[in-house]
């Protein structure tokens, strides 16, 4: 149970960072933390205590195996996370070039 709680705490820290920080890069870091929390949770879901790698030696092998699907899922999730972080950082760089600052409170052209 405890590892799951840590995942939730990690997601919570990430959300707190995104919601309270004023620096754009810190928001990106907070976003990464949320993502890591969820990825860690995916890995935890597939883990079995004392489980072995899922390689069946005989067709009716009854050994306790680790669930392999979440490991495949987490790889996809990490790659998608990489793509989003890359686009997010690209936008942050462009914002810095345009506005000359990374302060979120300076970005206030759109309202209403």
């Amino acid at each position: 149970m405890l590892p799951y709680v840590f995942c939730i705490i990690l997601i919570g820290i990430g959300l707190y960072t995104v919601l309270t920080k004023k620096n754009l890069l810190k928001i990106v870091i907070g976003f990464c933390l949320i993502e890591y929390g969820v990825n860690l949770f995916i890995v935890m879901v597939g883990y079995r205590w004392n489980g072995l790698p899922p390689i069946m030696l005989t067709p009716d092998d009854k050994t306790l195996f680790v669930d392999p699907i979440p490991q495949a899922l987490v790889l996809t999730a990490i790659v998608i996370g990489l793509a989003t972080t890359a686009v997010l950082l690209a936008i942050v760089i462009r914002v810095y070039k345009r506005y000359g600052t990374l302060d979120l409170t300076e970005l206030k052209r759109l309202k209403g």
Partner: peptide
């Protein structure tokens, strides 16, 4: 300026 802000 506006596009980047909106996109972020």
């Amino acid at each position: 300026h506006e596009e980047l802000e909106a996109s972020f």
